[in-house]
Design a protein around this nucleic acid. Structure first.
Lengths: 220, 220
DNA sequence: GACATGATTTGATAGATATCAAATTGACAT
DNA sequence: ATGTCAATTTGATATCTATCAAATCATGTC
């Protein structure tokens, strides 16, 4: 899974762009159907994006933390297909479309960076498709924890001590399973000595064990 | 689901680019790990892309038909994360990265188009994530058939008569289910009078019935 | 501290899908 | 036509996950 820290570009953007905004936990950054006019870089905090099907079904499509960029879902149609909501008090950088286009005219490098950022979103999505389409629930949860661990580590935090900002239900939605299943698997991992679970605080006790939990597919 | 016909840009590209190539059924257009240097527009035929997990698991991430563009999975890391294989004799346009960048310098409109094309891939991926994460197998198959139907229609073909270019196993991989399940559901749909199935030829008998098959999720 | 509320966990059971095995079909070469 | 091989379908069963119900826990309020 991609670590997601796009430090190189973000440093550039940081110098160029200073349209920062604070968003409170629970507040909506953009919602489905709204006009697309910017992408958003997370400076601090935790953001989720979710997509809604006509029949009312909803699925969380991503969790974004500092250094990651959301909002690309609006480019294709000029309207966002997702809703993005802050999971805690967060700080975001607003990067208007017009800026992107203007910068691109001037800089080959920046232009290529934006392509890469979008490309990263595509890679991330494909990884999730693989996860949802061909892994079992335990494997998905293990992959999720390892992914979070890597992203924490990429930010200078401990890869062994995770503070979840989302509810069990949101993990379940993201991973395509019910809340009870998430809970049971966390309990099981704890019993196996892979994790220590205390509400939203997860301690990874056996990193290799978690990795093994992914690879042990029934087939092959 | 997105229809995927990006006729507007493709007409432009058609005039600008004439690096066409014929690919035989079964041949690989690019493979996982290979250097990214171009994206590919399908002129005719049918292409699949698949992603491979370290432990050997494989999943098909997309089927591409005329007017659709593949290869964006390589932009993020400069190396493709998918392998793309022609499902029948096909014709593709090779659009080198260098051309894209050169064009963008000159034309705002083309530049925006490329962003939109990548954005479309992201929307497509999110739709599949929703499908894999929160639909049951019957609903997924129904959604798949309706999606194909729309894409056939967008190309001037009958939306009621579908010729599948992929095997049942490939449908299963794409939809996150086993081949037997695909087969059983097609049989069931046929018994319900929704479809007429003759090997790879599908006739849609009840379009609204298929749509209803998607929306009837157990929960609301 | 007792209470109210929402989140999470746990248990029992039902339902959906995978697995395994076998039969059938189709395409193609001989 | 006949045989061969791959693809597909079908059936019986096992496994996994969801569902429903209840208990427990955490948090904030009075």
């Amino acid at each position: 899974m991609p670590t997601g820290a796009s430090s190189h570009l973000l440093k550039k953007l940081d110098m160029l762009i200073s349209v920062r905004k604070r968003v409170k936990a629970g507040s909506i950054i953009y919602h489905t159907g709204s006009q697309f006019h910017a992408i958003y870089a997370v400076k601090s905090g935790f953001i989720k994006t979710e997509i809604l099907h006509e029949d009312g079904r909803m699925q969380i499509t991503g969790f974004y933390m500092s250094g990651e960029i959301l909002g690309f879902d609006g480019i294709a149609t000029d309207h966002h297909i997702c809703t993005s909501i802050a999971l805690e008090n967060s700080e975001i950088c607003i990067i208007p479309l017009s800026w992107i286009e203007r910068f691109n005219q001037g800089s080959d490098e920046l232009q290529r960076h934006f392509y890469k950022l979008m490309g990263r979103e595509i890679v991330r999505d494909h990884t999730i498709m693989l996860l949802l389409g061909s892994m079992q629930t335990e494997e998905r949860v293990a992959a999720f924890m390892l992914n979070l661990s890597q992203r924490f580590q990429a930010r200078g935090l401990s890869p062994y001590s995770l503070t979840l900002r989302m509810k069990r239900e949101e993990i379940g939605s993201y991973l395509g399973m019910k809340i009870e299943t998430v809970s049971r698997i966390l309990t099981k991992f704890q019993e196996q000595g892979l994790l220590e679970v205390q509400q939203k605080n997860i301690r990874i006790l056996d990193m290799n064990g978690l990795k093994r939990a992914i690879s042990q597919s029934p087939e092959i």
